[in-house]
Design a protein around this nucleic acid. Structure first.
Lengths: 96, 96
DNA sequence: ATAAAGTAGTTTATGTTATAAACCAAATAT
DNA sequence: ATATTTGGTTTATAACATAAACTACTTTAT
């Protein structure tokens, strides 16, 4: 029987965001937007969901004159990613 | 930049179905239902989508007195699965 | 000085998905 | 006979993804 895939992570954009945050540990909105090739609106919504899920922390500051949104994967988020990674293996490697 | 994930396959149930069909090459509705732990309604809908996408072939026969729906992954479906497999690797293995 | 364009987002509207619930037709069990 | 089970499909609804519109401000051009 297949293990359920965390619906928060089983979303192309949110998975891409988390994937990036695993590597860089901290990234700003515009960095995520560029590297995921997403629209600002979509990214904004999906970051909120990751935050509501308790997977990332978001800090809003000002960088010079412009607003800056910094995102960081937290412990819970990293664990969720690791679990997702384990669980999807079963789907990707069908037993012969 | 992340490669887009085939939306037909990036669905837990459809991915599970295709994953099973990669192994067994042919399976009946009830087998898929049991092994994916899905409801009949949901499975029915998702099998139609896989069929519409041209990924599986569905053959409706009678086994003794009961209707029997046989599902088979075809070439296009197998290829799509392989591409999906390749593409999702990028999300799952963030570069250090 | 002011209008136009750019930055960094959020909110809202709309279409798409996933899922459950209801339904159908026939077979079998009570 | 009628109730339940088998093997599904159709329909209704809630959740999701996305684009478009909007907010608030800054920079640049006129």
């Amino acid at each position: 029987m297949f293990k359920d895939l965390d619906p928060i992570l089983h979303s192309q954009l949110r998975l891409a965001v988390v994937s990036l945050l695993v590597s860089v540990k901290e990234a700003e909105f515009t960095y995520l937007k560029e590297h995921t090739n997403s629209t600002a609106g979509n990214l904004s919504v999906q970051l909120q969901k990751l935050k509501e899920a308790g997977y990332i922390d978001i800090e809003k500051k000002f960088k010079d004159k412009y607003p800056q949104t910094m995102c960081k994967l937290n412990k819970k988020g990293l664990l969720a990613f690791e679990v997702y990674f384990q669980n999807i293996q079963q789907y990707l490697k069908p037993k012969k």
